[in-house]
Amino acid sequence: MNVVLRQALIICAKDLRMELRSREVVLAMAYFGILVVLIFSFAFPVFSGAVSREQVVAGILWISITFAGTLGLQRAFEREREGDCIRALLLSPVPRPSIFLGKVFGMLLFMGVLEAVVLPAIFLFFNVSLPLDGFLVLALTIALGTVGYAVVGTLFAASLLRARSKDILLTIMLFPIILPVLMAGVKATSLILLPDGSQAELWVWVKVLATFDIIFTIVSLWIFEILVLD
């Protein structure tokens, strides 16, 4: 196996082992994600006028994922800050892309669990149904959006490890950058959920998500060490 990938998997396995023992990241994320969905289900009991149920549901889904994801990012990196573990990680001869990818893989797993909880809740509380092929496209959309979010989120959370107001700064810095992910995710999701949503437009937004993932993964791998050193 490629050394970068092998070392990334060692770091990811460590994060997974810690999470299986404490369950604090996933539980906090899932709890917060469900809470967001529940609050919105009370805020929008009736859908009428220019905004359809599908458009609102798409927005709620992505707000729930990104807000709960921020909670997970903060906690996942707090573990590296506690006891200054990040220094030991950076001092090791592990290729820097391995550290970055290891943390991204961990976040993807945590967010996957979050989405597995939030998605059924959305379908339940908002009475949304979807055929199997639509569900597969929705899963692809969420997966692409999650990759973009985890990549950029990991980069910023790592670079802010030693900052004083890191929790506030993370939110302030992260959300403007992931705005394209949010916009494309919401647009694509609403088109999937709408019975007469344009397929051509849907795939444009899916391509936007994929492009974002490729560009930001390459950039993040390149600048990760510069941002976390010194």
Binding site: I10, R17, S22, G83, D84, R87, L89
Partner: peptide, 22 residues
Amino acid sequence: SHHAMAYGDLSALENVTFYARL
């Protein structure tokens, strides 16, 4: 350094083994 650089949720053996693998 001044800190042990150890993960609190992992056992001592898991901590040192993790770094040994790296």
